[in-house]
Deep mutational scan, measured.
Amino acid sequence: LLPSFEIGAWTEDDVYCWVQQLVRKGDSSAEMSVYASLFKENNITGKRLLLLEEEDLKDMGIVSKGHIIHFKSAIEKLTHDYIN
Score class of each variant (00 low, 15 high):
24 R>Q: 13
73 S>V: 07
61 G>N: 03
2 L>K: 14
2 L>A: 09
46 G>H: 06
27 D>A: 13
61 G>W: 05
56 D>Q: 03
65 K>A: 08
8 G>F: 08
19 V>I: 07
73 S>R: 14
72 K>R: 09
75 I>M: 03
67 H>R: 04
74 A>Y: 10
13 D>Q: 09
82 Y>H: 14
58 K>Q: 15
59 D>K: 15
71 F>C: 03
24 R>C: 11
56 D>P: 01
8 G>N: 13
82 Y>R: 09
22 L>V: 09
68 I>L: 11
52 L>M: 09
54 E>K: 04
58 K>A: 10
46 G>K: 05
39 F>H: 01
31 E>F: 03
70 H>A: 15
30 A>C: 09
33 S>G: 11
83 I>F: 12
23 V>L: 07
59 D>Y: 05
14 D>E: 07
51 L>M: 14
75 I>A: 06
19 V>W: 06
9 A>F: 06
83 I>N: 15
46 G>M: 09
31 E>C: 09
2 L>Y: 14
54 E>N: 07
75 I>L: 02
46 G>R: 04
3 P>M: 11
68 I>Q: 07
5 F>R: 14
22 L>H: 02
81 D>C: 11
9 A>P: 04
43 N>E: 06
11 T>G: 08
44 I>A: 06
33 S>W: 08
47 K>T: 14
28 S>P: 09
10 W>A: 04
64 S>M: 00
57 L>K: 02
67 H>F: 11
58 K>F: 06
18 W>S: 02
11 T>H: 03
64 S>I: 11
73 S>Y: 06
76 E>R: 12
14 D>Q: 06
6 E>H: 05
67 H>Q: 05
24 R>F: 14
44 I>S: 00
63 V>F: 03
41 E>C: 05
22 L>T: 09
41 E>P: 00
46 G>C: 00
57 L>T: 04
38 L>F: 07
60 M>W: 07
60 M>P: 03
43 N>L: 06
69 I>Y: 11
7 I>D: 04
43 N>I: 04
3 P>Y: 08
23 V>M: 08
59 D>I: 10
61 G>Y: 01
26 G>N: 06
51 L>I: 07
57 L>Q: 10
61 G>E: 00
84 N>V: 10
66 G>C: 11
61 G>V: 03
74 A>C: 10
66 G>F: 08
83 I>Y: 11
